[in-house]
Each structure stands twice: as C-alpha cells, then as structure tokens.
Design a protein around this nucleic acid. Structure first.
Lengths: 247, 247
DNA sequence: CGTCCCCTTGAATGAAGTCAATACGCGTGG
DNA sequence: CCACGCGTATTGACTTCATTCAAGGGGACG
C-alpha cells in the first residue's frame, strides 16, 4: 500500500512497525472532508472538536488584526497535523483556512486518545511532529525579526522545499508552490510588490524558477547561504531511530 | 502555604484540588538551580535532559544567525515552563539563557511522567499551559509580521503586564521589567535606538513610565488600543473551570 | 470579448536603521 | 572621596530598505 504522507514523514523520526503504519493509514481514512481555496476550516472563536490531519493540498493558520491586516502564521502541507491537544482550549484564537483545494481527515478526541494509549511509538512520533511544528514557528519568528526581505523569502523557499521533500513531493528539484505573491507577503511580513522584486532578483541570479505555481531550485546550497538557512530546526536526522521497532 | 507562581497560573485554567497543589509545590522544590544574567541554561546543540520550571527571575529562548544577529524568540517568566516533551528531541535548535538572576527547578523525565500518569488534572493543566505558550509564539509572529514599531512595543508591554498579573507580579499598575532597550529590540526586531524613541513617545503621551527597570502602565486600555492587543490568545478565561475538582 | 486576478515595473515617500556624539548611573579601585 | 570605566540611555543627522501609489500586461474563464 502506498505510504501516506504522514507515515512517510514520521518515518524520518522513528522506525515504525507494520502495525503502526496500518494504524496511521487507517487514521488518514477517518472522517474525510474537502475544502476549496479560501474556505475556513476552523474559524477564530470556534470551539475545536477534532484534530485535523492534512492529506492533500495546502492550508494555513492566520490571524487578522482588527484593522484588516492579516498574518499567515504557519502552513499545513500534506502529512501535517494541527495541535494534538487542541480540544483543551475553549476557543480558537486564530483561523485555519484552505489555500488550495484541501483534503483533511478529522480525528475525534476519542480516536486520538485510543491510538496514543495503544501505540506508544506512534504517540512518541506525534509528539516529535508537534515539537517540530513549534520549532518551525520559532524559526518564522526569527526570520521576521532578523532577516531582510531577500533572506526571508529565500528562507521560506528552502524550508518548504525541505518539508515537501520529506513527504515525497519534490521531483527533480521542483515542487508545487501554490501561493500567490500576496500570500507569500502575508507570511513574510512584506507587500506583494516587495515579494515580486525579490523573486525577480532570485530568478535573474539563476537560483530559482517560479512560474505557474511550480518552484524549481537550481542551486539549493546557494539559496541556503543567502537565507542563512540551517535545517537543524526541522529535526530530520532520524532522532528516534535508535528506538528499535517491534517490526 | 504560599501559592507558587505555577499553581497560581494553572489556577486560571482549572480548579486544582489540594492534593494537586501539593504535588505541584513539591515539583517546584525538585533539583533547584540558579543562574546569573546571561548564563546559558541550555545551549543550542545540547541534548535536553530535563524540563525546566522557572521559579524566579526572567529567562529567554533565543536563536543566533551565523553572522551574529540574534532574535529573542520568547520569554520565560516565573511560573513558566519549557516544552514538556522536550526530551524527545536529540538536540536543541536554540538556546535558553538567563536574563536576570534566575531560579529553576529541573524536573526529570521520570518525575514528570509519574505526575502526568497519576494526576490527570495536572496533566490537563500542563497541556493547557503549553498550548498557551504556542499561542504566544504565534502572536509574536503576528506582531513581527504586521505591527509597526510602536504597536509592537506596546503589544509586548501589554502581554507582559497581563502575564505577570496572572502570577501575582503586578502591584498598583506596576511590575518589574528587567530588560535593556537592546533586549527589547532583540524581541521586537528593532534596534535599540528605535526602541528608545518609541518608549519616549509612549512616556510623553502619558501612557507609561519605565525607569530603573520598573514599568508602570497609566492607561492600559489606551495602550491596548495602540497595540491592537486582544488578550484572547492567553486563554485566561478559566476555560477548564467547568471540570469539577475532586477537592 | 470583457472581466478579474495576478504579476510586473517605475517613481515618490516614509519608517526604521546607521552612525556618532553625549549623558547618565553605578561599582571599583586608587 | 574622587577618578575611572563600563554598560545603558538619549538625541540629531543622514541613509536605506521596503512601502505606497499608479499604470500597464498577461492569462483564465464565463
């Protein structure tokens, strides 16, 4: 059976048993929902009832200021999932929306807790994934605080490229990048105009291609140097692989 | 017995039983360590072995770029604790350092797991606190991405004031603010010079006083309006209070 | 074929950074 | 007790990066 994105991703952390994998695959089939671009998946103020597991398409967390400004706080790619303990909170302090058409599996609290109880290795892997999400959030904070426009955008491209690669969505240096320049601006705290100029710049330097929502990175090391990108925060070095799987 | 900061903070989420409180107080007494200003509590690259529980003083997470720029990613105030599942990671992707003299209780994995097993209400409350930390991180991302200098600094002051208040560290509109202007700059992505100008501005408008590391907020609602501050992300509205305590 | 959204580009403007000089407070040691 | 040094705060003048405003182009779709 084809590896789901989630299984593939967690495999970077630990060696999962066949049973673990099947449990996760089953999880991905639970209560599927589809959303179109810009649809709200969970809105600010609502009470979260389920954990969302993103199977296909891109979604984002975002937060609006009262005067209309909007920040995209993080991205959900296939294989990502949103805060495991989210039901503890009474209401969402931000929204989650689809960026492209999206398929989500919604996991209830009960299902979730049953899995965590019965499959310690999966539980461990899910904690790992949530720690990585937190690390990504911190890196975005760092980017916004310290990097300039060119560094920020380069950094974002490097990060997305690596994250997509680790769920099997990079082929021959290319991946989908289904974001408008305005949306990239909402992530990087820049205007669409500035994003445009930086992308031109990177294109003319021969580092990347980006057209019709497909990104190709010609010289990843160079882009990483520009971005001051260090992948250590993604914790992909098989950290839990020493834990033998009862495979 | 005097409420520890932690007990006080968790009390905003749920009603703790006397037994729960005693367990938490005991936790605060475990393996105490002290650090001086600028001491490294855990450094990037190290393997995290314990959960740090901050009892007294201020500390921060920070991340350095290769060229020397530094971003302060978050602050630890008395009653805060760092990622509960941190031992899952093989190495830290950032550092934690003392800002002022700091007292920390270091909780081992075993102690931690024992408590979570035996005291579901405490476990629940700790998850709540970690979700709030994540929400704070998202708000910092939003600030850096969307707010201008004056809004960012005002927002930071509002947040710290509320957080300190909820652990009993605000008295007559005043609290300690043991940060240099340079450090405020490292949090808000501004230079010390810009921070200085904004603070002057807020002072001259009669909104705040800030001298010898003591902050007084004269008009909190006005400051909140400037900052576009909305406390919902701190989730202080007694969200779990409906859960009766076996008190 | 017109409309809408997105991308592109140029010129003017503005917020924050840089550089540099000065002031202040505090502890230390002569 | 004073001189000194050090870290921090303050202020002014100049620079720069990114924004704003504005106009035009291209592709998808009804």
């Amino acid at each position: 059976m084809k590896n789901s994105r989630l299984v593939r991703k967690l495999g970077h952390f630990t060696r999962l048993s066949q049973d673990d994998k099947e449990v996760l695959e089953a999880l991905c089939r639970s209560r599927p929902r589809r959303f179109g671009p810009r649809d709200t998946i969970i809105g600010e103020g609502e009470r979260p009832q389920t954990v969302s597991l993103f199977l296909d398409g891109w979604a984002c967390r975002h937060k609006g200021l009262e005067d209309g400004r909007r920040q995209i706080i993080s991205l959900f790619l296939p294989g990502d999932l949103c805060d495991i303990n989210i039901f503890i909170l009474k209401q969402m302090d931000h929204s989650i929306s689809a960026v492209t058409p999206v398929t989500v599996a919604e996991v209830t609290r009960e299902m979730f807790e049953a899995i965590v109880e019965g499959h310690p290795r999966i539980a461990q892997a899910l904690w790992w994934e949530s720690l990585v999400s937190a690390a990504i959030q911190r890196e975005w904070t760092t980017s916004l605080g310290q990097r300039d426009a060119k560094e920020r955008i380069s950094h974002l491209l490097c990060e997305l490229y690596v994250r997509l690669d680790c769920v099997g969505l990079v082929e021959r240096c290319s991946c989908q990048l289904p974001l408008s320049q305005a949306e990239i601006g909402e992530m990087t705290g820049l205007t669409a105009v500035s994003v445009n100029r930086v992308l031109q710049d990177l294109r003319h330097a021969g580092l990347i291609d980006l057209k019709s929502r497909v990104l190709t990175i010609h010289d990843l090391p160079a882009l990483e140097r520009i971005a001051l990108f260090n992948a250590n925060y993604l914790h992909l070095e098989g950290e839990g692989k020493h834990l033998a799987a009862n495979q």
